[in-house]
């Protein structure tokens, strides 16, 4: 970029161009959506199988969650070291997902106090995090998939516990796995376009 006299139109073009460049960059590559989507999907499927086949300790299937949490922490720290630009969106996203994590922990830990079967609420939390993320990064498939998961959450209030497990798996398929892969494709296209 060379130094030169600018006229007002050129100045505006530079401003618009740079701001558009910063905003169009989808910093989210969908990896964590895909990772957590498949992890919860497989764990829920295993839990369903073990529960319906009379295993006493079927909930062992959920031991994958703390392991996933540790992996996510390590992955996030490594990613942060690599990042060359930090947007305000990155900060908003961090708080949204931290809030989601706290809500999950409180619901799972304290649900028994209300004698509450918490699966419909967990599905609602999944939907909320996806819906808000879609709004922040302006990625319509995430918004739509989040909304679909809300519908699944409503259905979950009316079915048996076993069916709720299946609905939880369906919810992560709809609101994490599908949009996660969609996001990854868009991210790869963006990289190819930038190269």
């Amino acid at each position: 970029m060379q130094e030169q006299n600018l006229n007002p139109e050129e100045s505006l073009q530079i401003i618009q161009g740079m701001i558009r460049r910063a905003q169009n960059n989808l910093s989210e590559n969908g990896f964590l959506f895909i990772f957590w989507g498949w992890l919860v999907f497989l764990s829920a499927s295993a839990f369903y199988y073990l529960t319906t086949n009379g295993f006493d300790n079927a909930w062992y299937a959920w031991y994958t969650m703390p392991l996933g949490g540790i992996f996510t922490m390590i992955w996030s720290i490594r990613q942060k070291k690599k990042e060359k630009v930090r947007s305000y969106i990155d900060d908003y996203m961090m708080f949204v997902w931290l809030a989601f994590g706290f809500c999950m922990l409180i619901t799972l830990g304290m649900g028994f106090k209300l004698q509450l079967n918490c699966y419909p609420i967990l599905i609602m939390l999944y939907a909320t995090a996806t819906f808000i993320t879609g709004g922040i990064i302006r990625f319509v498939p995430l918004i739509v998939c989040g909304a679909l998961s809300y519908a699944i959450s409503v259905c979950a209030f009316f079915v048996t516990f076993e069916t709720q497990i299946l609905l939880l798996a369906l919810s992560v398929l709809v609101s994490y796995i599908i949009p996660g892969h969609w996001m990854q494709v868009k991210f790869k296209k963006q990289l190819a376009h930038a190269a």
Binding site: M1, Q4, L6, S11, I14, I15, G17, I19, V85, R86
Partner: peptide, 30 residues
């Protein structure tokens, strides 16, 4: 601000929280 590169840098930085030198260089082709 009324300089092509400085205006581009400020326009970029106003959209993000912070950016590394290499990122700014890549975005501005400077």
């Amino acid at each position: 601000l009324h300089s092509q590169l400085r205006l581009a840098v400020v326009s970029l930085l106003i959209s993000v929280k912070e950016a590394e030198f290499t990122h700014i260089r890549g975005q501005t082709n400077a």
